[in-house]
């Protein structure tokens, strides 16, 4: 496998082609916060918490580190002011789900209206049920700001007896609702 050279937060490292920035950072002990990511599932790139600043050919931009695969000569910064600003906004928007992170990023409260459900729509349960359980009992219903989580009525019974996705849940919706639907 081809090895590529890159720099993350000032540290030089080598990693295999096909590695994501998130994985590469982890390998040298740099922790990038995530919400919708799980090592056992396909990268999804939806929560944007893991965004980092990359510089390539003198062009700097923001990318989601969980999906962006490393390139030779890439310079990555995981904790710049620009990145922190985004994370702080996400913490506020998903308030109070990310109170653990809130402290680290110095967010004491949210300026926004609270979400209507405890669900963060991170999709971990949906993807778990689809990719690993291969059942598709949980699905995203609707789109845009009306998007919500729902359980397929015909499969509610199996859902109530499975619970395998519970430990992935970031907001609590599936934990509360998987039994009730049946």
């Amino acid at each position: 496998m081809k090895m590529l050279k890159l720099q993350i937060d000032g540290q030089e490292l080598q990693a295999q082609k096909g590695t994501t920035i998130l994985q590469a950072a982890k390998s040298i002990g740099i922790d990038i916060p995530t919400l919708c990511h799980s090592e056992n599932l396909k990268p999804y790139g939806a929560c944007r918490l893991c965004m980092v600043e990359i510089t390539k050919d003198e062009r700097t931009r923001l990318v989601a580190s969980c999906v962006y695969e490393i390139e030779d000569g890439l310079v990555v910064k995981t904790n710049t002011e620009r990145v922190k600003k985004i994370r702080r906004m996400i913490i506020e928007l998903l308030w109070p789900s990310l109170t653990g992170l809130a402290k680290e990023y110095d967010v004491a409260s949210s300026r926004f209206w609270p979400k209507e459900t405890e669900c963060n729509l991170c999709g971990l349960c949906v993807r778990y049920c689809s990719e690993i359980r291969k059942l598709d009992a949980v699905y995203f219903k609707g789109r845009g700001i009306d998007r919500e989580l729902a359980i397929v009525p015909e499969l509610a019974r199996e859902c109530a007896f499975c619970h395998q996705c519970h430990e992935l849940c970031t907001g609590g919706w599936i934990v509360y609702h998987s039994d009730q639907a049946f």
């Binding site: 929560c47 789109r143 009306d146």
Partner: peptide, 15 residues
Amino acid sequence: AHESCGKCVPCREGL
């Protein structure tokens, strides 16, 4: 807000 797919946090929650 209604035509967004609703996948990512910025678009869904921001809008």
